[in-house]
Design a protein around this nucleic acid. Structure first.
Lengths: 248, 248
DNA sequence: ATTACTAAGTGACGAGTAT
DNA sequence: TATACTCGTCACTTAGTAA
């Protein structure tokens, strides 16, 4: 009791946990957010560590490490399957995200947005021909002619996005002014709504990014349409990098 | 033209920018978010690097570095003043945040929240007596008696939060079920609404966290009230660490 | 008081490789 | 194929100190 701690403090300068905590917290949070986003807010992702590595711009080893670390912290559950891992966000992950995002006001952010061009980069690949099937539907084609100003070439150009930042930009695009093509029903089946977004390729023909309401959601893939055969017009082939842009 | 690149790719495996990009992106984003949050979404913070260091759990030097790096990337503007720096988020920062948050659905997150206890840690300090002034107002006191079940001791216990994570938790608390104490007007001045949040201290008396609608917003400080003199009841003094909790 | 530079320590990252 | 381990490297952090 004599000569107590000179400042009368019980806990002096309570040093935060360990070192490098902030970077760790940040990486954890952003990774969880990225997973949530590419899952389309469903909180369930089926992917390989290699693929995630590509998106994150990290090595496969590091992704493996990150996933295991997040899993052991209880933020996610993994299920090993032969072609990748199935990853589930736990409610602890949602808690974490909710905590971090609690104080940010989305409207306040929107108020400060500047109009500017966002550039997205993707790698061209050949899809399963679904795009062509859809775009060829007379009713879609008719409405597109009316709303977009051209009859679409019967096929879409598929790009696989190269990083989470590109995925983010696409998600931002999704939140913007789409041109809605109404779904319809034939005697065979029902076709859902399709959303078209005004994007552009420097020096290329007029294009739109199309997104089907109910496509088997892979948010890391985008489809572009035009009135011409884009691969030819742009002289690109599978594996080539294609850049397009839009304004926020 | 002969023997072209074997895979027919123009850009093979487009390696992401440089190394360690992800961690950097994450830290940048989270730091911007943290600044936005402690500014109460105003995008303007007046603080010293040392104080931010405390909140972030990093050294003063690192904060200095981070701030300069963010400034040179155009995410924020700094104004040096004799007692700290005034930091402004630029619209580029808002763009960045908007981009990252574009694809996350807040309702989807809330759906997955688990009910659990959040513990907040703060350091006791002596305020300017404003809390006492407010709580002593008859009208506040009367309403508190009615709504909270006790007549508040004429004084508040001020805690300075020790880290961004605690700030986040408080912001989450703010988004919850407050008990609203109506503002009123005397012949002298107008008193704004006050919000009370149900929190608890293990082994201590019933307490509420109070937040004035119009307090000179320092989100890193919280005020607690009870019907007794809390410093005595809890046997704590300036500089001591106090822990309280609430349920999400 | 502040913020910022330098130098040194260490923890994160990825290449190689095992499974 | 897939994920995960080892280990050398280097980028980030901080202590010390200058401004």
């Amino acid at each position: 009791m004599d000569i107590p701690n000179p400042l009368g403090r019980r806990t002096v300068n309570l040093r935060r946990q360990s070192k490098r905590t902030y970077g760790k917290r940040a990486k954890e949070l952003v990774f969880l957010l990225d997973l949530l986003k590419i899952s389309g807010n469903r909180g369930e992702v089926l992917s390989t560590t290699g693929r995630l590595a590509g998106l994150a711009g990290m090595s496969q080893q590091s992704i493996s490490l990150v996933l295991r670390s997040l899993a052991s912290s209880g933020f996610l559950a993994k299920q090993h399957s032969k072609n990748g891992e199935r990853i589930f966000l736990t409610s602890k992950a949602y808690d974490r995200i909710a905590q971090e995002l609690a104080g940010v006001s989305l409207p306040a952010i929107r108020d400060h947005l500047e109009r500017r061009e966002l550039v997205v980069t993707g790698t061209l690949f050949t899809g399963k021909g679904e795009g062509a099937y859809y775009v060829s539907q007379k009713e879609y084609s008719r409405q597109m002619h009316q709303r977009l100003g051209f009859v679409p070439y019967p096929g879409t150009m598929n790009l696989r996005l190269n990083g989470f930042e590109d995925v983010n930009k696409i998600l931002l695009l999704h939140s913007l002014h789409p041109i809605k093509i109404e779904g319809f029903t034939t005697h065979e089946r029902t076709f859902g709504d399709v959303f078209c977004y005004d994007v552009e390729i420097a020096g290329g023909p007029k294009i739109y990014l199309v997104r089907s309401e109910r496509t088997s959601y892979d948010l890391t893939v985008v489809e572009l349409i035009s009135d011409v055969y884009l691969r030819k017009a742009l002289r690109v082939e599978d594996g080539d990098t294609v850049r397009f842009s839009f304004f926020v």
